[in-house]
Simulated assay, not measured.
Amino acid sequence: MAHATIEWTANLEGAFDLGGLLSLIAAEMRERSSDVFPVGGIRVRAIRLTDYVIADSNCADDAFINIDVKMGVGRDAAFKQAFFNQMFDAVKAFLGDLFERRSLALSLYVEEAEGWKHNTIHHRLTARK
């Protein structure tokens, strides 16, 4: 399980490629995690925020993108540090000069979670092989 939720402020509409960002994060989880994240358990989604307050509320152009990742318990600390450093750097590079064009805060938080799941996607992926 690796689920990523990207929250982004509505004032960023059209300023970056949201679909590209979702695809980038999914690809990072699929292709650069050394199979630590099962492909069938990857979920990446975005939530456009219309109600928010940033900093001192004095600049309507202030914006943020926050990425929350939930994953199952038990991943090695060294893996987490290396993988999420690399993913954060990839996201920053993807956003490119957006940081220079406006006031923007980017954050990434990682949480280990236990939960209940029922997922037949794994079966479909295994049957393809």
Rank of each mutant, 00 (worst) to 15 (best):
A2R: 00
H3N: 11
A4T: 03
T5D: 07
I6V: 09
I6G: 01
I6H: 05
E7I: 00
W8R: 06
N11K: 06
L12W: 07
L12Y: 08
E13T: 15
G14F: 06
A15Y: 01
F16G: 06
F16H: 10
F16C: 10
D17Y: 11
D17L: 10
G19C: 06
G19I: 01
G20A: 09
L21W: 04
L22K: 11
L24A: 09
I25Y: 08
A27P: 00
E28A: 11
M29N: 04
M29V: 01
R30S: 13
S33F: 05
S34D: 15
V36M: 08
V39W: 05
R43W: 00
V44F: 08
A46K: 07
R48Y: 01
R48Q: 13
L49D: 02
L49Y: 00
D51E: 14
Y52K: 07
V53H: 13
V53E: 04
N58R: 15
C59M: 03
C59S: 12
A63N: 06
A63S: 15
F64K: 06
F64E: 06
F64Y: 15
I65L: 11
N66K: 09
I67V: 15
D68R: 13
D68T: 05
V69I: 15
V69S: 05
K70V: 02
K70W: 04
G72A: 13
V73A: 02
V73S: 02
V73G: 00
V73P: 00
V73C: 10
R75Y: 10
A77G: 09
A77E: 12
F79M: 04
K80D: 02
Q81Y: 06
Q81T: 07
A82D: 14
F83G: 10
F84A: 12
N85C: 10
Q86V: 00
Q86N: 14
M87R: 08
M87K: 08
M87Y: 07
A90L: 04
K92A: 12
K92N: 09
A93F: 01
A93V: 02
F94Y: 15
F94E: 11
L95Y: 09
G96S: 09
D97E: 14
L98P: 03
R101T: 12
R101Q: 15
R101A: 14
R101M: 07
R102L: 12
R102M: 10
L104W: 02
L104V: 01
A105Y: 04
L108W: 03
L108K: 10
E111C: 06
E111K: 08
E112W: 07
E112N: 05
E112M: 09
A113T: 13
E114R: 09
G115N: 11
G115Q: 10
G115I: 03
G115K: 05
K117A: 06
H118F: 14
H118N: 14
T120N: 15
H122M: 12
R124W: 08
R124H: 08
L125Q: 13
L125I: 14
T126Q: 14
T126W: 05
T126V: 10
A127T: 01
R128M: 14
R128Y: 03
R128N: 11
K129G: 07
